[in-house]
Simulated scan of single mutants.
Amino acid sequence: MDPNTPPQPSKKLTRRSFLKKAAMTTAGALVAAPAAYSYARFAEPKWLDINEVTLTSARLPKGLDGLRLVQFSDVHLGFHYDAPALEQLAQTINGLNPEIVCFTGDLVDYAVGQAGGAYVKALSLIQASVGRYAVLGNHDYFNGPNAVEKVLNSAGFKTLRNAGVRVERGGGAMWIAGVEDQWHGKPNLEKAMNGAASEEFTLLLSHCPDFADEALKFPVDLQLSGHSHGGQVRLPLYGHVVTPKFAQKYVIGRYELGEGKLQLYVNRGIGVSQHQVRFLCRPELSVFTLRKA
């Protein structure tokens, strides 16, 4: 600053200017709040995120190297999601050319009801060259899990309730295990692993992601889960606001447990529950490519 330049008078915040700025800030907030709600209510729940993920494992057999697997979860049919929307989702899944499709629970929000036939038709459209597998979620138990299991099985999925199956491809094999819901079912991973070889690459389907702490006790390589919806509403610099029981520890995305022994992926789900909103937490299709390390 030039020493010969006289100092400028400081600008004082007058009451009038303060009220003007406060009014502008308030007006901006009033405009932003409805816009944010409209986005969360009408836009984001329909804005599907197709998330490509590569997972590597030294235990994966060479014959399964490059296997392409699609996971979807938490459809919540009957709560702002219907059979035509499920048919559209099926076509999207088919466009991803999956070899295996895994569904990780909460097909319905409360009950199958009279739309069961339409749900079977929509799910039957999903194509996978190696196989389609499913587990039940907590909402699937609300009005009887057998009805939901019947829909899935009738559509060509193999529903794994404390059960497992060996899957072969390209001369390689892996074990796919599925457990009952941790909240309303009686998960028994020991039973689901019956028949699996200890050296065999094992994929576990569990609706609840926090079951991973139990899975660590077994030779499980990869667990796919849903349930959390990723929080459904996430705030900048804060993350999820709330998650349900058994999705408190592992909420969204990929985790490594037991020094890399177990990889866990938590899918954000397709539908919504309780509140028809999503914010900074788009619905997700997970597309995995399995690679031998």
Score class of each variant (00 low, 15 high):
L64N: 05
L64A: 06
L64M: 09
L64Y: 07
D65K: 02
D65S: 07
D65L: 02
D65F: 07
D65Y: 05
D65I: 00
D65T: 00
D65V: 01
G66S: 09
G66A: 08
G66Q: 07
G66P: 06
G66N: 07
L67F: 06
L67M: 12
L67H: 07
L67A: 08
L67N: 06
L67D: 05
L67P: 03
L67R: 06
L67C: 08
R68G: 03
R68A: 07
R68Y: 05
R68M: 02
L69P: 01
L69S: 06
L69D: 04
L69C: 12
L69F: 11
V70A: 08
V70R: 01
V70Q: 06
Q71P: 05
Q71R: 03
Q71A: 02
Q71C: 02
F72N: 09
F72V: 11
F72C: 03
S73E: 03
S73H: 02
S73Y: 01
S73K: 03
D74Q: 11
D74P: 11
D74N: 13
D74K: 13
V75M: 03
V75W: 00
V75G: 03
H76I: 01
H76S: 00
H76E: 02
H76R: 02
H76N: 05
L77M: 13
L77C: 10
L77N: 09
L77R: 10
L77Q: 10
G78V: 11
G78L: 12
G78E: 13
F79D: 14
F79P: 11
F79M: 12
F79R: 14
H80G: 04
H80F: 12
H80L: 11
H80N: 13
H80P: 04
H80Y: 13
H80C: 04
H80E: 12
Y81C: 13
Y81R: 15
Y81Q: 15
Y81L: 15
Y81W: 15
D82L: 13
D82E: 15
D82C: 13
D82K: 15
D82A: 15
D82F: 14
A83P: 10
A83C: 09
A83V: 12
P84Y: 15
P84A: 14
P84L: 14
A85L: 02
A85Y: 01
L86G: 09
L86P: 09
L86K: 09
L86E: 11
L86V: 10
L86T: 08
L86W: 07
E87R: 14
E87W: 02
E87M: 06
E87N: 08
Q88H: 11
Q88S: 12
L89D: 04
L89K: 06
L89V: 10
L89S: 08
L89P: 04
L89Y: 08
L89H: 07
A90Y: 07
A90R: 08
A90M: 05
A90F: 04
A90L: 09
A90P: 10
A90C: 08
A90H: 06
Q91M: 11
Q91S: 14
Q91K: 14
Q91H: 13
Q91V: 11
Q91N: 11
T92G: 02
T92K: 12
I93A: 00
I93R: 01
I93Q: 03
I93F: 02
I93S: 00
I93L: 09
N94D: 10
N94V: 03
N94Y: 08
N94S: 08
N94H: 07
N94T: 03
G95R: 01
G95N: 04
G95F: 01
G95C: 02
G95M: 05
